[in-house]
Nucleic acid binder design. Structure first.
Lengths: 111, 111
DNA sequence: TCCATATTTAACCATATGGTTAAATATGGA
DNA sequence: TCCATATTTAACCATATGGTTAAATATGGA
């Protein structure tokens, strides 16, 4: 799925959508369940979800009546590649990056 | 300068603005010079620049008639912290990250 | 002093965005 | 078959966004 950086960053520029992404980090969710914590109508959430889909940040799979929303792990890739490729590598200090890498390696080896 | 993630991602969601940031990676520039490569009016560029300022991605310093635009190195920090903290660490594969870190360390030691 | 240069501000416009409510659609289950 | 549940679509609305041109502002320099 080819999406533009415009779509990606724009999808990320809304706090509701960022919260949804974080919720989906836990587990796949039905649209109704995604909507639950928000003080907002179901159609509004439905629209946010299609924006996230179009940006490649989630996928949706309809099983029966339920449309399951699933985080798309590679969705952020283009955005982060842009940011890293941007060259301002100090965006995160080296130390915490190395810590993250170690964590990642640990997790990998735990599998 | 406290800016929201909304402002940050939203500022990054426009290709003109991303191009401007990359231009400023080279060197500080006057507003007129920033505008030059774009097929767009000066006021339009001026607006883009204030959006980038408000998002904390650049700073502007007026010297004489000229308003110098300068990349704000830490501007991307909050956005990238969000993306990394998001947990999907595979956004960039470990290998290229390590390569980047090495490059960075080389550059640091070259100073 | 007066013109040129650099930039922003004002007023405007078309389209996008993020929300609403009401209606439509599709599936599940008694 | 018929109602309930899950979700989307349609129509609408207010405000934001990204552009325009014309005018205003401020500084530099002859």
């Amino acid at each position: 799925m080819h999406t533009t950086l415009d779509e990606l960053f724009s999808a990320l520029s809304d706090n509701t959508r960022r919260k949804i992404l974080i919720m989906l980090l836990e587990d796949d969710m039905a649209v109704t369940d995604v909507a639950d914590p928000f003080d907002m109508s179901l159609p509004a959430i439905s629209k946010h979800l299609s924006i996230l889909s179009n940006a490649g940040l989630i996928t949706q799979e309809k099983r029966g009546r339920v449309n399951w929303c699933k985080l798309e792990p590679d969705g952020l890739r283009d955005a982060s590649v842009w940011m890293l490729g941007f060259g301002q590598f100090d965006i995160v200090d080296i130390e915490s990056l190395e810590k993250l890498i170690e964590t990642h390696i640990d997790l990998t080896q735990a599998n």
